[in-house]
Design a protein around this nucleic acid. Sequence first.
DNA 1: ATCCCGAGGG
DNA 2: CCCTCTGGAT
Length: 225
Amino acid sequence: MTRRARRTYRLLAGRYPDARCELDFGDPFQLLVATILSAQTTDRRVNGVTPALFARYPDARALASADRAEVETIIQPTGFFRAKTDSLLKMASALVERFDGRVPRRLQDLVTLPGVGRKTANVVLGDAFGVPGITVDTHVGRLARRLGWTGEQDPVAVEHAIGALFPRRDWTHLSHVLIFHGRRTCHARRPACGACPVATLCPSYGAGETDPDAAAALVRTEARA
DNA sequence: ATCCCGAGGG
DNA sequence: CCCTCTGGAT
C-alpha cells in the first residue's frame, strides 16, 4: 500500500469513527432483505418498515409464500415498492428452491438471486458473513474519480483498483468509510471541500480538475477565500 | 430541481 | 446505453 493510500485511509477513518452498516441485522436473510429495500432510500425509512415486515415474514420460506399486496403495503414507504416486492418474493423463492432457504456465502451465488446486484451482495458478504470485499456504489465511484482514478469507470474495475490500492485492509470497514465520506462530505453536487480531511491529497481540489461537480465546488470554495 | 448506499429490462 | 420504478430529503 502506498504511503498516500495509507494516509488517505487514516484521515478518512478518523473523520468517520462511526462508519458502519446502519442496517443492523445479525441474521443474513434479514440483512439481505433490508439491503434490497434500501435502494434509493434512507436507512431510517428502511428501519421503519422492517419490524412489521419481519414480524410477518421472518425467513425465506415465509416470504416466498407471502401475500404480495400485504408486502407492498408494508414496504410502501421505501419507494419502488412494486419492483421491490417482486424482487423480494422471487428472491425468497430462489433461496428456498436453490439454497434450502439459506443465504449463500459466495458472491457468484448471491448475484444470481433476483433483485440482488453486486452492491447488495457485497454488503451482505461483509456485514453478515465477515467476508471482506469492496462495495462500490454511486458514492464510491465518484470518490475514486475525484481522487484520481482515470481508468475504467465500471464498478468492477473500480473495485479492483481500490482493492489493489488498499491491500490487506478491512475492506468492509473501508467501504463504509468511503460511503460515509461520499454521503456526508464529498457530495455529488456541492462537495464540502472545506470540511474534507483529505482535501490536500485530492487532485480534484487544487488543480487539474476533471469532474465538473467538484470543479464547481472548487470555484465556490476559492470565491469564498 | 436534483439526488439518493440499485437492479432489471429493452 | 438507455430507461423505468417510488418516495423523501434538501
